[in-house]
């Protein structure tokens, strides 16, 4: 599902029901069940057999939803938050920096809500493997159930384990390690143990505070990691609109332009006020411009991403 596209919705699929960008819900399709929202109800049995990306009308025809194929990116937007989660810009940058691709073996700690796990699994499947550790028992169990429902069990092994106390229990196995822990510096020795010694190993530590970065960098240096580099990345959303852009002559001539009307309403008003002239364009007055601007409030900080590499062992001469 998350690591392979399908074209038609089947029993047992997890799909994303889309009403608007703010209203998306994951639904596990099971005939006999019903999905309800303010537009009415939608029978799961009506979803089965439809193509992904189809529109489904509610039983009372009051509204509709779109039935989308799940992807790790959409999952990040709908995942039930059991912890603070990783967002797309960080997930993407870490994956590229750690050179994730099919066949890579990776260790993630902790699993949290599993937002990043889905993305890692998608990228390293079908031949790679993710070992993910979570010290919170209930969170581990919930994530395990989700991975099973999403057919990711062959790619993800999840273990309820306190790695600070017990290490990863893995040696010379991983191409990459990702640490999202309150004290990542205490897990660097285990990470070193888990990384392969016959080829370059890569690590990323994800910490919101600069003090954590300081301690992590010292630990990485002490344990022989090199190329310690730290980044912060964000994506700024933009809104795009067509707005009136009249010549000042209009104001000089005593015209008052309503700058707040949407493009659609402007069109409507125009048709009402001058039905005879129809689409006639009175230049200056009706001038418009397509503009964009960053949205008013944006995420300003997620975490610092500290990267390092572990050089393979060399035989002493």
């Amino acid at each position: 599902m998350f690591h392979k596209y399908k074209s038609v919705i089947e029993e047992g699929d997890t799909i994303i029901v889309y009403v608007s960008p703010e209203a998306m819900r994951p639904v596990h399709v099971k005939s006999g069940e019903i999905f309800n929202n303010r537009f009415g109800s939608f029978r799961h049995s009506d979803m089965i057999g439809l193509r992904y990306g189809s529109k489904l009308r509610s039983n009372n025809d009051k509204g509709f939803v779109y039935l989308l194929h799940p992807t790790p990116a959409l999952w990040t937007q709908v995942v039930p938050h059991r912890t603070q989660i990783l967002y797309l810009p960080d997930i993407s940058f870490i994956s590229l920096y750690l050179d994730l691709r099919p066949g890579k073996v990776m260790i993630e700690c902790g699993t949290g809500s599993g937002s990043f796990s889905h993305s890692i699994a998608r990228t390293i499947a079908p031949t790679g493997h993710l070992y993910t550790f979570e010290y919170h028992e209930l969170r581990a169990a919930t994530a395990k159930k989700e991975f099973e429902e999403h057919n990711l069990s062959s790619i993800i092994t999840i273990e309820h384990r306190d790695v600070l106390a017990n290490g990863f229990g893995k040696t010379d196995i991983a191409d990459a390690v990702f640490l999202d822990l309150p004290a990542p510096w205490e897990a660097i020795a285990s990470a070193k143990d888990a990384l392969r010694k016959d080829t370059i190993g890569r690590i990323c530590c994800f910490s919101p505070c600069i003090e954590q970065v300081q301690a992590t960098a010292l630990a990485l240096d002490e344990h022989g990691f090199s190329e310690i580099r730290m980044f912060e990345c964000l994506a700024k959303d933009n809104e795009v609109r067509t707005v009136p852009f009249p010549d000042i002559e209009e104001a000089i001539n005593g015209q008052k332009i309503n700058f707040k009307l949407s493009k659609c309403d402007r069109k409507k008003r125009k048709l009402e006020s001058e039905p005879a002239s129809g689409g006639h364009d009175d230049e200056g007055k009706d001038a418009e411009i397509l503009i964009s601007k960053p949205i008013d409030t944006a995420r300003g900080h997620t975490s610092y991403l500290t990267f390092a590499i572990l050089a393979p062992e060399v035989e002493e001469e």
């Binding site: 810009p89 940058f93 970065v213 580099r229 730290m230 980044f231 912060e232 990345c233 964000l234 994506a235 700024k236 959303d237 933009n238 960053p294 610092y304």
Partner: peptide, 8 residues
Amino acid sequence: TESWLREY
């Protein structure tokens, strides 16, 4: 979206 990246 516009992406933003800062190294420390």
